[in-house]
């Protein structure tokens, strides 16, 4: 549990610095791999979805994970081909909404049937994919970074799900629920701030 917590904290830190900007001096593929890890809204949404999927047990986690992978590949392909992208603030708000929803479900250790899980995996993958547009890149560089984003996004949800699934002891399960509550709290406050800012405009 502490390893997972530290891994999440350490993974989140550099991302707070880098946001969507590629890291200079690093090749496009690796930039893409790190993208879902280093952008806080992506990290929160994908990790919370992964924890939720992993909480359901190994049998019910397979189909949602495969769905996530396939939909993420499709979304990245579409955004790469047509440069479709969510407006930045909209993308972040939707990802944070996903994090709030999944975080609450993780914190309450809600057992879900397959269909809601598939829906959550699909929406998370769509949001992550369409919020990873790289219109400033062309050709092989764009292909590499989007491929990397797919790999990074899938590994992130896979590891989160595996961590939740491996958590068998009572304190480990509670640790996962606490992570869910943290994700919910962080995302909810920023969502409230976003809505307040829109109201004040």
């Amino acid at each position: 549990m502490m390893r997972l917590l530290l891994a999440l904290v350490l993974a989140g830190m550099p991302g707070l610095v880098l946001a969507h900007a590629p890291i200079e001096g690093m090749d496009s593929f690796y930039n893409g791999v790190l993208h879902p890890v280093l952008v806080p809204a992506h990290l929160l949404a994908i990790v919370s979805a992964g924890l939720l999927i992993g909480q359901q047990g190994v049998k019910r986690m397979q189909a949602p994970l495969i769905t996530f992978l396939l939909v993420l590949i499709a979304a990245l392909a579409v955004t790469g081909q047509f440069d479709l992208a969510l407006p930045e603030s909209t993308g972040e708000m939707l990802l944070l909404s996903m994090a709030v929803l999944c975080g609450v479900l993780v914190a309450t250790e809600m057992q879900l049937s397959l269909m809601p899980l598939m829906a959550i995996a699909t929406v998370a993958a769509l949001l992550a994919g369409f919020d990873s547009s790289q219109p400033e890149l062309q050709g092989r560089a764009k292909l590499a970074i989007l491929t990397g984003t797919g790999v990074g996004g899938f590994l992130l949800i896979l590891y989160a799900a595996a961590a939740a699934e491996f958590a068998n002891r009572a304190w480990q399960k509670i640790g996962i629920r606490i992570l869910g509550s943290w994700a919910t709290a962080s995302a909810f406050i920023v969502l409230a701030f976003s809505f307040a800012s829109m109201r004040d405009l």
């Binding site: 609450v104 509550s181 943290w182 919910t184 709290a185 909810f188 406050i189 969502l191 409230a192 701030f193």
Partner: peptide, 9 residues
């Protein structure tokens, strides 16, 4: 944390 988020909001 979850109730704190409400206060934060």
């Amino acid at each position: 944390p979850m109730v704190m988020a409400f206060g934060g909001a």
